[in-house]
């Protein structure tokens, strides 16, 4: 059970790719902590990820604004939806207190969302940014 960043998910923009890799590493640690039921570590990772996700989305959104990117609005809405779902997930963890079912749910949801979002929306953004810079 793991969430792994692979080269196939590279979008070709160093800042974005670097942040995605960190995101995957920490999410993987969160899943591991959930499997072990390590509540302190889970709490720390939830906090870290909440702020790291906001920072990463902020980085992408600034890149889009600076580039006058035409797809800004949709991309930002996708980020907002993720943050909302993340917070809802954390709340359900806090209410239900973990468990295997919730861990699998997190892995499926976050894995599917990240892969689809990175392979689609982020890929399109990175291409536009690289093209603009070149």
């Amino acid at each position: 059970m793991a969430i792994k960043w692979t080269q196939a998910l590279a979008v070709g923009h160093p800042t974005i790719d670097g942040q995605h890799q960190e995101l995957f590493r920490r999410l993987d640690k969160l899943l591991e902590a959930m499997m072990k039921g390590d509540r302190d570590e889970i709490g720390r990772l939830f906090d870290f990820l909440a702020s790291y996700v906001v920072e990463h989305f902020g980085t992408e959104e600034k890149l889009m604004r600076d580039a006058g990117y035409a797809g800004y609005e949709m991309h930002k809405l996708a980020h907002e939806r993720f943050v909302k779902d993340y917070l809802a997930f954390r709340k359900s963890y806090e209410d239900a207190g973990g468990g295997a079912a919730l861990t699998i749910k997190l892995q499926n949801w976050v894995g599917d969302w990240l892969k689809a979002h990175i392979a689609g929306t982020d890929q399109v953004l990175a291409k536009a940014l690289v093209k603009r810079a070149g």
Partner: peptide
């Protein structure tokens, strides 16, 4: 539907 699927041509 476009937003749900993150369609790149949404704005236009």
């Amino acid at each position: 539907w476009m937003l749900h699927h993150e369609y790149p041509g949404f704005e236009a």
